[in-house]
Design a binder for these strands. Structure first.
Length: 419
RNA sequence: GUGGAUGUAGCUCAGUUGGGUAGAGCACCAGAUUGUGGCUCUGGGGGCCGUGGGUUCAAGUCCCAUCAUCCACCCCA
């Protein structure tokens, strides 16, 4: 029982002060590039009505059928901790009528997501995503811009060898034709498929295409790919998207069988693939979802976006030798020599802080020597030594912890030295 | 949900075929230096050996269960 008080729930992580710097770097540079591309941040609740995800993400998806944190609140409403970011943003768009303020709406978000999975390398029950969504335009340039944003973000972080895998699933019509054809193709070999794929065959046969099971791969080797069923418009859209990517120098590889596990994707579908994070190889993915807004009860507004996994980016970076920058020593630490100086030291502390200096003092009753050691460990640039003699003279001894030199100055001057 | 591996100090890990007050390195605290950090030396605090049961004269060590972590499957970020 007591153990529960000192153990975090399965699949969760504490991000300790030591690692926070890396997190901030990812978040800050994501915010930076999104703003540069004209996106604005949106924050939606961490929980939503369960129906939003059932409808938006798709009831047959793994996420909805077995990975959601769903519970009844005290008002007997079914609530779900968000497993992904797109559906909530769509809901917020409609609820706040953002689409009536002018299109396109370009939004980005960052925050925790929740999926009840079994944890392993790069997979947690609470994880964090960075994402963008563009509403209101079907232009292939939007698709290219969204993918380019992500690729440039990776480059800016120093992330290497990210492969952009690209496919097009087509519009509802194309998907319908493909589905029928695929259904016919797989009909005779259903019993050779894995258990889950036998279910997929009925619900969403397209998902069989990217199953990794060897038998399924074999069965699917010559299966009709979605791209072969694109109508004229969708095909043109796909070609233009590729052309825009080429034009901006974003490399990609076409992947006919890339399908992805969320039901809402239409046309463009993509994934960012990377090596070296265990069995997982995706640090993010996304696509176009031209029917989702309508599916959620809004007007037919096309959308396009992606989600990236913070933990997976971090994992990849550390595999590639990503180090935290050597922090420069700054700030000060007040060191007292003498029993009766606590009050003076405290006043000095607040005086210096009032003048914009980052400064601390000892609260552990340590010796002078130990206080200096603490100052060193804290990584400050200066130790401000206050002893009986300094007090008598109205001065402070400022010790440069890098140079090892020190200088006696009057209290007013000290601020100048410590800046 | 399925399979495999692993749980010993804050961290990384020793601990022999079951045998005696359970160890090391790092970290932490103190002293060597009662007004000076980093280097060095000396000392110190820290362990229900994941938890519960069992076998045995005797269990950190063997058996069972359970929980957790890691890895993989499934799927995804």
């Amino acid at each position: 029982m007591l153990r529960l008080l000192t153990t975090r729930p399965r699949g969760t992580k504490d991000v300790l002060p030591e690692e926070i710097e890396k997190w901030r770097r990812l978040e800050d540079s994501f915010r930076g590039i999104c703003e540069q591309y004209g996106f604005r941040e949106i924050r939606t609740p961490i929980f939503e009505h369960t129906e939003l995800f059932e409808r938006g993400v798709g009831a047959t998806t793994d996420i909805v059928s077995k990975e959601m944190y769903t519970f009844l609140d005290r008002g007997k409403r079914s609530i779900t901790l968000r497993p992904e970011g797109t559906a909530p943003v769509v809901r917020a768009l409609l609820e706040n009528n953002l689409h009536k303020l002018g299109l396109p709406q370009k939004l980005y978000y960052l925050g925790p997501m929740f999926r009840y999975d079994r944890p392993q390398a790069g997979r947690f029950r609470q994880f964090h995503q960075l994402g963008v969504e563009v509403f209101g335009s079907e232009e292939p340039a939007v698709d290219a811009e969204v993918m380019a944003l992500a690729m440039n973000y990776f480059t800016g972080l120093g992330l290497q060898d990210v492969e952009l895998h690209l496919n097009s699933l087509g519009c509802l019509k194309c998907r319908g034709n493909h589905r029928n054809e695929l259904y016919g193709f797989l009909k005779d070999s259903v019993n050779k498929l894995c258990k889950t794929c036998r279910e997929r065959f009925d619900n969403n046969p397209m998902r069989v295409l990217d199953c990794k099971n060897p038998d399924c791969r074999k069965a699917v080797r010559k299966a009709p790919a979605p791209v072969n069923f694109l109508c004229g418009e969708c095909l043109e859209h796909f070609h233009k998207t590729q052309d825009f990517l080429h034009a901006t120098g974003v490399d990609f590889v076409l992947d006919d069988y890339l399908v992805r596990g969320l039901d809402y994707y239409t046309r463009t579908s993509f994934e960012f693939i990377v090596k070296g994070i265990g069995a997982q190889n995706s640090i993010g993915g996304g696509g176009r979802y031209d029917e989702l807004v309508a599916e959620c009860g809004g007007p037919r507004i096309p959308g396009m976006g992606f989600g990236l996994g913070v933990e997976r980016i971090l994992l990849t970076l550390s595999g590639q030798g990503f180090r935290k920058e050597q922090s420069i020593r700054k700030g000060a630490y007040i060191v007292t020599a003498g029993e009766e100086l606590q009050r003076d030291a405290f006043i000095l502390l607040q005086f210096l802080r009032g003048n914009g200096i980052a400064v601390e003092k000892d609260y552990m009753g340590r010796s002078l020597r130990a206080q200096l050691k603490q100052a060193d460990r804290k990584g400050v640039r200066y130790a401000v030594i206050l002893g009986e003699e300094e007090k008598k003279r109205g001065t402070l001894l400022i010790r440069d912890m890098v140079e090892g030199t020190q200088k006696e100055v009057c209290q007013q001057e000290a601020v100048k030295y410590l800046m």
